[in-house]
Design a protein around this nucleic acid. Structure first.
Lengths: 342, 342
DNA sequence: AAAAACACTGACATCGTTGTCAGGTTACCA
DNA sequence: TGGTAACCTGACAACGATGTCAGTGTTTTT
């Protein structure tokens, strides 16, 4: 094997520019008190030698590692992928790299492994996605390590760390109003499991929107699901088998909405002809389903990006603390029929 | 802010165990020639102090960084997520961490950025996924850096680096035979774009399987698509509008298969009642589609894992060179009708 | 005009680990 | 018994950056 090509070191650059290594360090770290003339000379040398500071050396010497951790429990989901994408882009802009740390809650030693990774790498901070961001053990590990973290859509403990989220209640409210405006007043709702605050907030938005029009949800048209496809099928079967039937179903997420569509089709009901269905999340399948699913889009990529920004904000800066709400969007596709003009 | 808790250093462990730091290093690196008694004493000390070697220091001192790069151009796809998951798990087993490097081919400076990341972090090796693994510029950057890399399902240059793949031709052959065995002889095929060798191989497997039964594909039932959903719709419209129509459609990937199903439904054809449709890839939507899509599953997670293994095999080891083929699977769902008993 | 503050630069130690090498045992063979 | 190998260990110098501090000019203040 040939010797791995080594890049230029800070010494080479210093020599080339005729200054000390320390001055080179000052220049590319943007420290004050470097003469403009010297700065330019050094920058030219850096460019000429194509110098890249060694991250390991910086980490060892300084107090930062320029490494951020993304802790995931389900790395192959589309949601996680989008968070990662946003985080990745922003991290690069900010001169950091992203190390992905998978956590398998079902494994025996996962806390040890997480601790090991964080301490070995001296991560500067950690990003947490749901549902991990509400896992007490994870938070305890991070608190014990005294490492900064930012949560994405956490369920509870708003004071515990900075976080980003969307206004789920408002989004569900908007979706419900959208249905009402199109003449739907008989709306069934498929809930998520009560342990997720999302499930609660989305239902509350639905209920409140109805209430604003002087309506109340029919009790037997509120069915529990668990955010999974099959539970959507089951729930829809229940909704469609009772006395009378709703003209629209609002599922608390897309997977259950797909289940509802399939269940309706199997009963010979066409969507949206006989039944309108809406979801929440804008899953990738939503645009290739038949019919295309009207749903709520979360700005997941931006959430990942903002989480990195918060993480890199100097501690103590008030601007980064607390919750940061990003705008959602209602994505109109083909799964809703218009019963009356808005 | 409180001072970040620092873990024990190798000196602490050495002192605790009553040996030199170098011996501690020897123990946890599994070097030879450490007395059993000493080894145990050191291991006990490591455990007692909960010692984790500092990755930055190791990287700086030794020749390895214990960091692998995963270069992705579309980090939020399910495929990329699964590769990552497999790579992540295996990397952890092998004591490495994974740094994700997004590459946006459309950006101006992407080669510079990639080079910068690799040299700054002194990555031990890099994983490449399609279609990036066939990008000449990426390969040139890596070759110039003289950094080991492993490709996943590359299109060409089999000698250029180790790689993992599945036998796409055999898989398509198997799927075609599956259709033939169920009485389908009038089969339409939706191809991918010719620039992907996957498209070619999958088509060849299809053609060969027909040929083995003494059949030849009908020319106007071979339609070109581009692996995207809409092209599947268009292709199916073409296939279903000519004189006579196939009893089955084999799409070169799932996205186009979904398009075909939707197009068929719009023409009043039920799947699989009036038309069978199969795909390739086992996209997440395949199991929540109506009907569930019969398709080929690639062992993507295992491929990511094996890629890491290959990357960590010492260079020069013959076992790691060349291509490594993993087994695919035919996932039987509900999109194929039986016209005759197999 | 002296003192003080500011602006700029480099020497040197340091971060935590591993590579190199020299040295000390013990075991084996002639 | 002496010599050579194999086995085991630690001192010391890297690795490539940054933090600290001292030192030298230059300006501003007193």
């Amino acid at each position: 094997m040939t010797e791995r090509t080594k890049g230029a070191s800070i010494k080479d650059v210093a020599e080339y520019a005729g200054v000390s290594p320390k001055t080179v360090s000052r220049v590319h770290n943007g420290e004050r008190w470097v003469r403009e003339e010297v700065r330019e000379k050094v920058l030219a040398a850096i460019k000429a030698l194509n110098y890249r500071p060694n991250a390991a050396a910086r980490s060892l010497s300084g107090s930062r590692s320029y490494l951020l951790g993304l802790v995931l429990d389900n790395p192959s989901s589309h949601y996680a992928g989008d968070v990662q994408l946003g985080a990745l882009k922003r991290a690069r802009l900010r001169g950091c790299h992203l190390v992905v740390e998978p956590v398998d809650i079902k494994a025996v030693n996962w806390t040890t492994e997480l601790t090991a990774s964080i301490t070995a790498l001296r991560l500067d901070g950690v990003l947490l996605t749901p549902p991990l961001c509400d896992n007490a053990e994870v938070l305890k590990v991070l608190d014990d390590l005294d490492i900064p973290y930012v949560r994405i859509s956490p369920d509870r403990d708003p004071e515990r760390s900075p976080y980003v989220h969307i206004d789920e209640r408002a989004a569900a409210h908007e979706m419900t109003t959208y249905l009402l405006d199109r003449g739907h007043t008989d709306i069934g709702f498929i809930r998520g499991q009560a342990t997720h605050s999302s499930a609660r907030l989305r239902f509350e938005g639905f209920r409140d929107a109805l209430a604003e029009r002087g309506l109340a949800p029919r009790e037997d048209w509120i069915v529990d699901g668990n955010f999974q496809f099959p539970s959507g099928q089951d729930a829809a079967r229940t909704l469609l088998s009772g006395e009378g039937r709703p003209t629209a179903i609002f599922a608390a997420n897309d997977a259950m909405a797909f289940g509802a569509i399939v269940a309706a089709s199997k009963q010979g009901l066409s969507v949206p002809g006989d039944l309108s269905v809406v979801g929440f999340d804008d899953a990738p399948a939503a645009q290739i389903y038949s019919p295309g699913l009207t749903t709520i889009r979360q700005p997941v990529i931006e959430m990942g990006a903002m989480a990195v920004d918060l993480l890199l904000t100097p501690p103590g800066d008030e601007a980064a603390s607390g919750g940061h709400c990003l705008a959602h969007g209602l994505v109109e596709r083909d799964s809703v029929a218009v019963l009356a003009n808005p």
